[in-house]
């Protein structure tokens, strides 16, 4: 049984906002299967009592004072936008509701 099915890859592509044509989906399904199969062994390595390490540093409580710092120049920012109008970023119509 493959580690990942073609349907799952399709679902992943949707979650990751990647518009992949069918032949690419097929291609990736094969490759992801190989990769995931070879990393799957990891699920048996660590005992339940091993704490996870999400970060190599033991730092805590890094804060900055609540002070205003200069913002960027609006024109410079919008100059890099694919489309802009009225001082705002112009984006295609949004279908989905806000989360």
């Amino acid at each position: 049984m493959p580690a990942i099915t073609r349907a799952e890859v399709e679902h992943l592509a949707r979650l990751a906002r990647l518009a992949l044509p069918d032949d690419e989906l097929e291609h990736y399904a094969g490759q992801l299967d190989v990769i995931l199969s070879s990393v799957a062994s990891i699920s048996e390595v660590a005992a339940a009592d091993v704490p996870p390490t999400s970060h190599p540093l033991p730092l805590t409580n890094v804060f900055r004072p609540d002070e205003i710092r200069p913002s960027l120049d609006t024109d410079e920012v919008l100059a890099q936008a694919p489309a802009a109008a009225d001082g705002r970023f112009r984006v295609p119509r949004i279908l989905d509701e806000e989360q």
Partner: peptide, 16 residues
């Protein structure tokens, strides 16, 4: 972004 695609579609097309 040709007027026929939504923001969601444009995101997915751009990333692909």
């Amino acid at each position: 972004d040709d007027g026929t695609h939504s923001a969601e579609e444009v995101m997915a097309l751009s990333r692909a």
